[in-house]
Design a protein around this nucleic acid. Structure first.
Lengths: 126, 126, 126, 126
DNA sequence: GTGGTCTAGACCACC
DNA sequence: GTGGTCTAGACCACC
């Protein structure tokens, strides 16, 4: 058993931006908060935010312009790639965990379908 | 955004035992490690383990005998309840996250089915 | 012989609240003192009060709302259950002790009846 | 609310001897353990035992003979007085507590009678 | 301010 | 050895 199995904070920051991109809340050209500002908001060490921003830069997800700020550079292509990567990771996690509870893939599919059917019905009744 | 999204340690301990029960690694009557022993192994304060054990006792998952130790009390019924509860929670998590990536329920189902088909094929080729 | 036959403090705290409920001094929805406040008043460690409150919450006797406080949740039903449970425990204690003094059940009944007759008479003379 | 509402230890020691007298486990002339010996057995400060013995002496319940030990002096008369005193105190406690739970004297009597009837039946079935 | 989690460590009761 | 209770106090999250 392993405690504190959270992702490192800088990775969580990156994932947060990826999600905003995927949901369309951020688009190419948008300005994101300054490192200092964001560090304060998250109550996190500025170095942590810096590391996140640096990695995002190195994968050309954002672009930093000296004296101006940091801007989204990711295009629709990258956005889609992120979406698939995150979905893949989530799928892997789900399959591994549900398997460790002793459910077969068939059962997992059925449970998921049943849940969605139930949710659909519920939303119709609203 | 939310950091430190780990569950409290005592809940992780409880979930660990639930999983062992579900997988059949622990059965009714089995002795589990003493509070002190387990605390040392996990490098955690004995009080934290005690809290987990106490909560497990209050749900009649284990039974503690003073001076003797702590023993599994859960029967097959409880074991199955835990299995369903954990599967439900996992399902909820999966549905919420995949939805936040912008996938419909239909797409989620298809992706899951595709993955399982791929895994089946892979295992056949072994 | 057994010294220090007091109940644990956290149980005494719980019993105190049960009695207040039974006597109608506390009702569903009432706020009870915060953990810190009550700990200071009782000159007891906050953790001890917290343990009492936590156990009361787990039996749905109270409800705690983070940042707001702890509130009575028990309804009349639970109130009556507590009343019977406490009366049962008291009865058991009385029977055991009076028996250990060598009195028969018959004698115990007669003594109790005699006392009550005496008290009635006394209150009439006031 | 009041914690640590135990009787002082020296009174508990005296009550312990009174009970042994009442039950006939100790009789006039019997030797009781030396102060030192008893203090060790109870894991209690010798001064505490000494105070108990001194009080028992002053009410002529025991007699200390220098170089020989301490002996029961109480006769049947005193034994009966103790029995009644302890029963009285117990009765008072029971009446007060059951009253504070909101039961009338009549109800208390009925509950006590019901319990004894149940116990009788049970013992017949053995 | 409120409750929630955790550590460190004392002392006790039972075996 | 086992678990049970309690203190002192830190740090966190939510309001």
């Amino acid at each position: 058993m392993d405690f504190d199995n959270t992702q490192p904070i800088y990775k969580q920051i990156i994932d947060g931006y990826k999600k905003q991109l995927i949901r369309g809340e951020l688009q190419q050209g948008d300005k994101i908060p300054s490192q200092r500002e964001y560090a304060e908001k998250l109550r996190v060490n500025p170095n942590t935010v810096q590391r996140a921003y640096r990695e995002m830069e190195s994968m050309q997800m954002v672009e930093t312009v000296r004296g101006q700020g940091t801007f989204i550079m990711a295009d629709l292509n990258m956005q889609n790639r992120f979406r698939q990567e995150m979905a893949d990771a989530l799928l892997s996690y789900f399959i591994r965990e549900i398997g460790s509870l002793g459910y077969t893939g068939e059962e997992a599919l059925q449970m998921l379908a049943a849940r969605q059917a139930a949710m659909k019905e519920e939303s119709c009744n609203d």
